[in-house]
Design a binder for these strands. Structure first.
Lengths: 165, 165
DNA sequence: CCGATATAGTTCGATTTCGAACTATCAGTG
DNA sequence: CACTGATAGTTCGAAATCGAACTATATCGG
C-alpha cells in the first residue's frame, strides 16, 4: 500500500529506482544502456547489476514517453545507441528530486528494517560508529559545524588507511 | 543480474525482503498476516506497508513450503489465522542470517545510489557519517583494528567538543 | 585475416509487487 | 438487535524485475 521501491513526484506517476537512476545519469551526459549498467555496477561495488531484460525495455519506454531520446549519431554505424535526457525528462527528474527529503527518510527506514532482521554489523568498528551516531544526534546545533569537521578528518584518515597497501 | 532486493542463503533459493521479515518476525512470536503488516508499518514509520495482495499469498506459500505453520487455535472460531515458525523455518532464517555482513553491505550500496541521485542528507554531519559507514563495510579484515582505533579517537574528540561549553 | 574477448542489445517465461475492489468477522454503542 | 468501525483475508489485472539464452558488432593481438 506504500511501496518501498517506488519513487513518487507529487501529481505524477511513480517511477522505479532504475528509471530514476537512468534520468539522473543521462542528465550528466550521453550514455548507452550498457554504459548505465556498468556505471551502476561500479557505483554499488557490484552489489547491483540490473538485468538487461529490465533496462533495455525501460529505455524504449522512456523514449516513447519522450523523457529520453537517442543521441545524434556521430561517426559510422555503431551497434550502440546513446541516449540523452530531453527537456521533459529533465523536468520529471526535477519534480522527483523535489521530494529528496522524503526519499532519504525512506532509505533510513529500509536500513532500519535490515538492522532489525540482521542485527548490527558484527565488525568491531561498527559499535563505535553507533556510539558516534548517538553522540551526533544529541549534539547542539551550534556544535554541528565543528562535529562535521572532526568527522571529515576521521573519514580522510580511514580512506588513507584503506588505500595504503 | 545481481539483485538489490533478494536475499540469498548460500545454496538455497533467494528470498524477498518481505519473506525474510515474516520469518524474522514469527521467530519472536505467533502472529497473523495483519499483525505483520501493522508491525512493519510501525517499524518503518509508515514508509512501507506491504500490499495484502503480496503478503497473504506469500504466507500460503511459506506454509506449503513448511517454513511456517498455523498456530494451534485457542478459543472459538476466529476470522484470524496466527502463524508460527517451524523448525525448518528457523533453519532457513539462520542460514540467511549467516550472510548478514553481505546484506549490510548491500544496504549501504543502496543508500549510495540514493545519495548519488538525491544528493546528501540534510544534516551535514550525518552524510559524512554514512560515508564512514560505507568505508567501514568495505574495509579489508586486516585493517579493521586500525580503523577501530581511528574511530575511537574520533568519538573521543566529539565527546570533548560536546562537553566544553 | 582469424579468433578471442569486450561491448551492445533482444527475447521470454517465471516470480514479485502493487493497488484497488471486494467479502467477512468481531467488538462496542445506542 | 442493528449500526459502525476496526480487524482479517481474497482476488485479480497491470507493472517491474530477474536471469538465462541468444544474436551481433568492435577491437585487438598474433
Amino acid at each position: 500500500m506504500t511501496s518501498l521501491f517506488q519513487f513518487a513526484s507529487k501529481s505524477g506517476r511513480t517511477r522505479t529506482l532504475l528509471a530514476l537512476y537512468v534520468l539522473h545519469s543521462l542528465d550528466k551526459n550521453e550514455k548507452s544502456g550498457y554504459d548505465i549498467l556498468r556505471e551502476i555496477e561500479k557505483l554499488t561495488n557490484g552489489a547491483w547489476v540490473p538485468s538487461k531484460g529490465t533496462l533495455y525495455p525501460l529505455l524504449r519506454q522512456l523514449e516513447t514517453e519522450g523523457l529520453i531520446a537517442p543521441a545524434p549519431e556521430k561517426g559510422g554505424s555503431r551497434a550502440r545507441t546513446g541516449f540523452i535526457l530531453t527537456r521533459t525528462g529533465r523536468d520529471t527528474l526535477k519534480r522527483i528530486r523535489a521530494h529528496s527529503k522524503e526519499h532519504h527518510r525512506k532509505t533510513d527506514q529500509y536500513r532500519h528494517l535490515i538492522t532489525a532482521i540482521f542485527g548490527n554489523s558484527p565488525s568491531p568498528g561498527m559499535s563505535v560508529l553507533f556510539e558516534i551516531r548517538t553522540l551526533l544526534n544529541e549534539i547542539p546545533e551550534e556544535k554541528e559545524k565543528e562535529a562535521s569537521k572532526i568527522l571529515r578528518r576521521c573519514r580522510d584518515e580511514l580512506k588513507k588507511s584503506v588505500n595504503q597497501t
